[in-house]
Design a protein around this nucleic acid. Structure first.
Lengths: 237, 237
DNA sequence: CAGTGTGAACCTTTTCACAGCA
DNA sequence: TGCTGTGAAAAGGTTCACACTG
């Protein structure tokens, strides 16, 4: 199978393979097996083979995949043959860190503009880019033809910023604000919530403590009697 | 159904519900329907009901859920009745932003220590916490009984840091370094990769451009002839 | 009668296991 | 012989739709 419609789950892993492959290429590796690539990307080999089969049959039976060739095809599939200009709105601690993040330029992105609502910040420079006010977002986005926006504002501002982004022609949003934002059909949003990630970890942490029996926990168990205690949580990854 | 073994997907959404509910509580709302909560959390109502049913039957038919009661139960399930000390290793731009992130203390976490390998940074303070060298990680982790660690180092250092964390008694790791880390069984890892999030967005962006037909793209399509062009990517959320 | 709780249907993703090829 | 590519099976997650109840 080649052809369109790569499953969502696969799309989420292609960047991981790409990074691992680029590292291998830099180390001089020219060929890699699904087993090796799987290990480098932190998944299993069946998944790698299935995922890569969605791109077409780029492997060689008995040998493996050509690293450079795969890199090329994954880049093309992800649209990373070009660099994407990105506008960041909200230049607090996180926005500043993102503006300085070396991983962005290294992996296909260019900060096209920094926007903040705080008048005191206007004109300040971060990583050589001047911070501009929110009402200049359309001008900045259009001047650089930015289609991707990052929201790193407080939650309260996020919806308003999202609307401004959409009005400015942004088509994809990466939202770090801890709130759900509504956008028109056709505009894509991905959300990253740092505290949520930690809270997911505490769930399993707390669960293990309860299972260990030693710990505090299991103090009260309301509503239902007691019931069987089940196996430990499957470890995340 | 109440009782153990909450599905992973549900665990990932409980923090979203929690945040929405806390906001509602602060606004004075005492009761909420699955429909409303769904909207606030950015999911659909069937999912909310199914998810909440895993915690037990805390709703009232014809009425909805008691906001305060639900908050209590979700907090308990996630282990957020206590505050969790967190050790951050790697105090670059991102580590600094995390150390200052207000969302952490607000949502159940306390920065117990900052660690960096760079001698020039040792002793500097971020958010009133002194940066300490890597070899003091065990002492710091044990003194605060930290079970959660955050890796915000460059990729090259991540594996080594992960091992040091495990040796220091850390049981759950949030890894921001763009590399897969290996840990012993029983240690949990979650990974957040900022560039990967953007790369996933570019996939859909590029796909849409190709479908629109106007755009460049579809320049070459190797290996297989041509084949049907299929429906637009289902929009992320 | 509004809205929960939940079987059942459906869809997606993962895993298995092995035929087939270089 | 070694490793890909892929059907088929299994697991997991989502959505539907409606009986039930406060």
């Amino acid at each position: 199978m080649s052809e369109r419609a790569i499953p969502e789950a696969t799309v989420g892993r292609l960047p991981l393979y790409l990074r691992a492959l680029v590292e291998m290429a830099e180390a001089g590796t020219t060929t890699v097996s699904s087993e090796h690539l799987a290990e480098a990307a932190g998944v299993n080999s069946a998944k790698v083979r299935k995922d890569l089969s969605h791109l077409g049959s780029y492997g060689t039976r008995g040998v493996g995949y050509d690293v450079a060739y795969l890199i090329h095809h994954i880049r093309r599939e992800l649209g990373l043959t070009q660099h994407w200009p990105v506008v960041i709105v909200g230049v607090g601690n996180l926005g500043r860190a993102l503006a300085n993040y070396r991983g962005f330029p290294e992996r296909g992105f260019r900060i096209a503009g920094l926007i903040d609502a705080d008048p005191a910040k206007i004109g300040q420079r971060v990583n050589a880019i001047a911070i501009r006010p929110l009402d200049e977002l359309p001008a900045v986005a259009r001047a650089h033809e930015a289609l991707i926006g990052v929201i790193s504002t407080p939650a309260a501002a996020a919806q308003q910023v999202a609307e401004a982004m959409v009005a400015a022609g942004i088509r994809s949003i990466l939202n770090f604000a801890p709130v759900a934002i509504a956008v028109p059909d056709g505009v894509r949003v991905r959300k990253v919530d740092l505290a949520v990630e930690l809270q997911i970890l505490t769930y399993y942490e707390q669960r293990d403590a309860a299972l260990a029996g030693l710990g505090t926990v299991e103090v009260e168990r309301s509503t239902r009697p007691a019931g069987r205690r089940v196996r430990a949580a499957t470890s995340r990854s």
